[in-house]
Computed example of a mutant assay.
Amino acid sequence: MKRILAAAATLALLFWTASAAAQEARVIKNYEDFGDYRVVYSVFNSDFIQPDIAQKYQLVRARDRAFVNVSVVKKDGGTRGLSAELSGNATNLIQQSRPLKFLEIREGDAVYYLAPLRFENEETLTFNVDVTLPNGKKERVTFRRKLERP
């Protein structure tokens, strides 16, 4: 009887641990859908950009710099970026806000937007990006990221 109770307790503990781990796992969302359009966004360290590309578009690469990357595509499987109007800001945990100034990048048929950003190591920022979609409708995308220096 003791073995059965011990096995049951062990099994219950195993299920509880697996359940807790599953609840802690988070999926980092990187897009929002608005009707026929999908707004895809990311934030990455500036050294991700190759030096020749940075020079071509006059982008500054440094340990304390990142880029907010936004593109608008058709939701029905389109991968080619579409023209849009963007503005926004990044706000830290003590509510200090800084504007995001997006630069349009065109490479072949692709269109995407980059906004340079300075950050402190391990800084958590909330990004608010206002997007005017190709159909003229205005939408807002809000997301949070923790930035770390390489």
Rank of each mutant, 00 (worst) to 15 (best):
A8L: 14
S19W: 14
T142V: 14
L86C: 08
Q58L: 02
L133G: 01
R26C: 01
L14T: 13
K29A: 03
T10A: 15
E107S: 13
V141P: 05
L147V: 01
Q96I: 10
R65Q: 04
V70K: 05
L93K: 12
V73Y: 05
D36Q: 11
A18G: 12
L59S: 01
L14P: 13
A18M: 14
E85L: 05
L100V: 03
E32N: 14
A21R: 12
K2S: 11
L103Q: 08
N121R: 08
Q55N: 07
I28M: 10
K101M: 07
R63P: 06
V72G: 08
D109L: 06
D47C: 03
R149C: 03
R98D: 07
G88R: 04
L93T: 14
Y31V: 07
R80P: 00
A21D: 08
V40M: 09
F143S: 04
L59P: 01
R26D: 12
D64T: 00
W16I: 09
N69D: 15
Y31E: 13
D109S: 12
L117F: 03
L133D: 03
L93P: 04
N89E: 15
A115N: 01
R145Q: 02
K137M: 01
I4V: 15
L147A: 06
K75H: 13
I105H: 07
K2G: 13
E148I: 14
R98I: 12
A20G: 03
A18S: 12
F67D: 07
D109A: 06
W16P: 00
D109P: 04
A18R: 10
Q50C: 01
